[in-house]
Simulated scan of single mutants.
Amino acid sequence: MIKYLLNQSLLSMKKRYDYDVTYMQDILRTDLGAFMKFMAFQTMSTHKGNLPVEALYAARIRAIIWDDCGPCTQLIVNMAVEANVDSVLVKAIVDRDLEKLPSAISLVVRFTELVLAHNPEADELRQQIIELWGEKGLITIAYGICSTRVYPALKYTLGHGKTCSRVVLNDEPVVPKKNPQLVGSHHD
């Protein structure tokens, strides 16, 4: 019965976001205990803290673009729009158009990429983030970056990460852009 109810929740998510939940259904079907631990992880991935929603989604979107080829990126973009992040701002984050972003959001985009690249230049930006939102804001950004990356890693590990797809915002395709100076530098 519990598996049935949990699967219904997954199907609701599938319908709400037009997102393939097969990898989660596979975990649920195979190992209820593992699925329950995955669900417990969701509390970390939904942490919002005191961070403005735009900053939180800037970190999440840039982190997912680092590791994903479409479906998870689309999910995070949809969630950002659902959280009332202006679609123009979402597009600028996806496009990595720093000039169209407010300075605080541009800071989060740059910081996220430097963190993911393990670039020591993140240290200077980290201090700016702490000045804006305190240690709690930094922790929220850290959770946003780390937890967002779990999903593509899990999908690829389980064999569900092979399908690339176009990201759409307001019925228009958008092509996620990566920082050309950091592409390829995230491997130690």
Rank of each mutant, 00 (worst) to 15 (best):
M39E: 13
I129E: 02
G49T: 00
L56K: 07
M13C: 13
K37F: 10
A40C: 06
T43L: 13
T22N: 10
K91E: 15
M79K: 15
L89Y: 00
D68Q: 02
S87T: 15
V115F: 02
A58H: 00
M24F: 13
V85L: 09
K15M: 03
A34R: 14
D20L: 05
T112W: 13
L98F: 00
M13G: 09
T30W: 08
V77G: 03
E121P: 03
S45E: 13
L32H: 01
A55C: 09
S45Y: 08
R96C: 02
K100D: 04
E113G: 09
N119S: 08
M44S: 15
S87R: 14
S87L: 10
A80G: 08
I65P: 04
P102G: 07
C72G: 04
Q25Y: 00
V85P: 05
I93D: 01
L75D: 03
D123Q: 15
D26R: 12
T73R: 10
A58S: 06
R126L: 12
V81I: 11
M36Q: 11
R16C: 10
F41D: 10
G49K: 01
Q25W: 04
V109R: 05
Q127N: 11
T73C: 12
Y19R: 08
I129K: 04
D26I: 04
P102F: 00
M13K: 15
A58L: 02
V81F: 01
I61C: 02
I93C: 02
Q25H: 07
M79G: 07
L107C: 01
I61W: 02
V85C: 01
E113C: 09
R62E: 11
S106I: 00
W66E: 13
N50S: 15
V109M: 06
S12D: 13
S103H: 12
L75M: 13
G70P: 08
I65N: 05
D86N: 09
R60P: 01
A59V: 06
D20S: 03
Q74G: 07
E99D: 12
A58Y: 02
W66Q: 11
A92L: 03
P71A: 09
V21E: 08
R16M: 10
D18A: 13
L98W: 03
P120N: 11
D18H: 11
A104S: 15
A63Y: 04
I27T: 09
L32Q: 02
R96P: 00
S106K: 12
F38C: 07
R29Y: 08
F35Q: 05
Q25I: 09
T43P: 06
T73S: 11
T30L: 10
P102V: 00
R29Q: 13
T73E: 04
T46G: 12
E124A: 15
Q42M: 12
